[in-house]
């Protein structure tokens, strides 16, 4: 017999002792989406004619609708994500305390300060590419005109900042070695790729028919890398120490397994990748099912990682 009794209270008995509930996975999803959108739109700006890596000595192409919408959505979605993060704070009046310190060992501190750079630059890009809609606003134009000629630099910084936010959403969890499911440094790469894939899916959903294929092909690339990263995440877990291995088996064969395999792996990666391949070779026409599956898979990934990470016993 081996019986352990404890009057320590735990979240399995009392839900109010849970660390993070639904707000945090939604923030991680929207953060990844916003970062992905910034990478994609910033990248498109750099690659178009007149962009840093585009054809030189030619006038810049007019901004496509997707660059315009994507650039606006990025800071808007991040703002929405931040709102959910704010909802999760237990002392909402102290939110400003994040900006009275910089703790270099705390990823959450890095994230808070990164947002200070992300927001103005992402908003600036959104304003510049939507200049023609803002002609009537003289104050806004006073910001747009001097910064317009630095668009390449802004886009360049934004691509990196977007990738940084995407990675950050995973690193935020992976530094908590007390929660063995989260304690994998490849989680940052998994979340980055998932964020890029969901951003491509969102743009694909909104893009005019003639542009959809381009984003579909882009998404194929991101999903492939996401699959690669997820495989490494699983291998890293099951070849790890006893604690990490048990945690990984809990994730892939425990109560969250149906969500992990069916909704995330099959629904969020394998099926969309197959459908996108058929689209690319012209076998089927574009279907809204693909972006919806990708977005659902991406959101589900955040939920199962955050929930399973807390449900598995603490570092042993």
């Amino acid at each position: 017999m081996n019986e352990v009794l404890s009057n320590k209270l735990n979240p399995q008995v009392l839900p109010h002792l849970e660390i993070w509930a639904w707000e945090v996975p939604i923030y991680l999803f929207l953060g990844g989406l916003a970062g992905g959108l910034l990478v994609i739109t910033g990248g498109m700006l750099l690659l178009q004619k007149g962009g840093l890596f585009g054809k030189k000595s030619e006038a810049r192409d007019p901004f496509t609708g997707m660059i315009q919408i994507g650039s606006v959505l990025s800071p808007v979605l991040l703002g929405l994500g931040m709102f959910f993060l704010f909802l999760d704070l237990e002392n909402k009046f102290h939110v400003w305390r994040f900006y009275t310190a910089f703790v270099w060992t705390s990823p959450m501190s890095w994230g808070s300060w990164m947002l200070i750079i992300f927001f103005p630059l992402a908003t600036l890009q959104a304003l510049i590419v939507n200049e023609r809609w803002l002609e009537g606003f003289s104050l806004v134009n006073r910001i747009i005109q001097p910064s317009k000629k630095h668009l390449n630099l802004i886009a360049m910084i934004n691509v990196h900042m977007g990738a940084g936010i995407g990675v950050y959403t995973g690193i935020l969890l992976s530094t908590f070695y007390a929660r063995p499911i989260w304690s994998s440094s490849i989680l940052g790469f998994v979340f980055l790729m998932s964020g890029l894939s969901s951003a491509a899916a969102l743009v694909m959903l909104m893009a005019p028919r003639r542009e959809k294929l381009m984003f579909s092909k882009m998404d194929m690339y991101f999903i492939s890398l996401e699959g690669f990263a997820t495989t490494l995440f699983i291998i890293g877990g099951i070849t790890g120490s006893e604690n990490v291995r048990d945690a990984m088996y809990f994730l892939i064969s425990g109560p969250y397994a149906p969500w992990f395999w069916v909704v995330f792996v099959m629904g969020g990666m394998i099926v969309p990748l197959m459908l996108e391949t058929l689209e690319a070779i012209g076998r089927i026409r574009f279907t809204v099912l693909v972006p919806l599956l990708v977005l659902t898979g991406s959101l589900t990934l955040r939920f199962i990682i955050v929930y399973a990470g807390q449900a598995f016993p603490t570092f042993a």
Partner: peptide, 10 residues
């Protein structure tokens, strides 16, 4: 100074 972000609990 605490915001209640729960990073310490995690």
């Amino acid at each position: 100074l605490c915001t209640g972000c729960k990073a310490c609990i995690a």
